[in-house]
């Protein structure tokens, strides 16, 4: 094969190699979210109430220890799981029971979920129980929201639910 033809052929093959690379590094476009949809995220990081009561240490139980090292009470470490419910327009969208972290179930419980929901006006209701000793949901938030297309609304918890 003559040199010129060979170099021309090489140019063609380089083009055949790089053109798909150039194209596929940014095309075709990917539709991740429909135009009339929005996103709702729940992000809760909360330590449930400890399970059980502290009990007084009876006199003499720590006799081998000096007085300053003796504890007056023994408290349980295990915490309640979080029971969480999300309702949208009266219909349940999400329900979960999340255990606390840690080997002794004594850490915080974390919940994260992302939902794709239609944009527009909705009634959101968030309920959470962080104490197994209590029936029902001690923490509740009910709110009307107007979600714009592609808007991200975050439901978080710090001494109560908040929508941002």
């Amino acid at each position: 094969m003559a040199d010129a033809t060979r170099y021309l052929g090489q140019g063609l093959l380089y083009a055949l190699f790089f053109l798909p690379i150039v194209y596929f590094t940014h095309e075709p476009q990917h539709r991740h979210l429909a135009e009339d949809m929005a996103e709702l995220k729940i992000a809760v990081r909360h330590a449930g109430v400890t399970i059980g009561e502290c009990t007084d240490v009876q006199a003499g139980a720590y006799t081998p220890l000096p007085g300053n090292k003796q504890r007056p009470q023994i408290c349980p470490r295990e915490r309640s799981p979080l029971e969480l419910e999300l309702l949208m327009d009266g219909k349940p969208l999400y329900r979960a029971s999340v255990s606390p972290s840690g080997l002794h179930d004594d850490g915080v419980a974390s919940i994260y979920r992302r939902f794709t929901v239609p944009a527009g006006r909705h009634n959101l209701e968030l309920r959470m129980n962080d104490n197994v000793a209590v029936e029902g949901y001690p923490w509740v938030l009910e709110q009307e929201v107007d979600l714009q297309p592609a808007q991200v609304m975050v439901a978080s918890f710090k001494d109560g639910f908040r929508l941002q």
């Binding site: 790089f18 690379i21 150039v22 596929f24 590094t25 940014h26 095309e27 075709p28 476009q29 990917h30 539709r31 991740h32 979210l33 429909a34 135009e35 949809m37 929005a38 996103e39 297309p149 592609a150 808007q151 991200v152």
Partner: peptide
Amino acid sequence: VVSLWRPALSQAPANLDMAVTEVGLDWI
């Protein structure tokens, strides 16, 4: 040649308050 012809560019800046709707992906 490819870099001068089709330089690598960024897309619109990220904004976490708005969800990504349509995005140009590197399919590789």
